[in-house]
Amino acid sequence: MTLPDLGPLWLTLHLAAVTTILLLICGTPLAWWLSQTRSRVKPIVEALTALPLVLPPTVLGFYLLVLFSPTSTFGGFWVRVTGETLTFSFTGLVIASMLYSLPFTVQPLQAAFESIGRTPMEAAAMLRASPLDRFATVAAPMAKRGFLTAAVLTFAHTLGEFGVVLMVGGNIPGKTKVISIAIYEHVETINYADAHVLAAILLVFSFTTLVMVYTINRRYPVGGRA
């Protein structure tokens, strides 16, 4: 048995890693704001954040395709600034994945921040800690399980992305041909052997990751009794 082309696997891991890192950076402030705010727009922002959960990926993909098109304002602006189009590019795929996986980052983080409550943050404030200091030294360490869950879910969810990629990225080897697309293509061409290998890799990888997360979560609870 020969291995199929593993290019789509590496591309998928690359995309998932970039998406996860960027989403943790952008999603953390959003999740923190949602967990603390008493603003009236909170439900609207929450709904927007959760939208990718219920929207068919093709709908999200369709709107993004329209938005990314060089003839649109945003797409045209992007072409003028970077010289590249967003459609059918890796960058476009990253942006699409970030939107698609946003709830998988924001919701676990928001839940983790909310479960900490106000009281430890008040205690830190009374120990002369500034808001940023309080976040870094109290909220973030106490929410470390939330970060772990968010990172793993985002990563795993991006691995399985299909519909959005198909709409926005197409199927360009080395650029936008991710593993789920490759599997689909193998099945379409009745190349079940290669489809089996890629599918098995994805299955084993996802399962192993989840087992690791649950093990770590069990072994290192917050405030562990070392």
């Binding site: 430890p120 205690a123 404030a125 009374m126 808001p131 109290v138 106490m142 917050v222 405030g223």
Partner: peptide, 20 residues
């Protein structure tokens, strides 16, 4: 003035020691 700049110490009823 935000709480952390008032220079006050606070002992809460529920101690609020950091669990981590």
């Amino acid at each position: 003035t935000p709480p952390h700049k008032r220079g006050l110490g606070y002992v809460f009823q529920d101690t609020r020691l950091f669990p981590h």
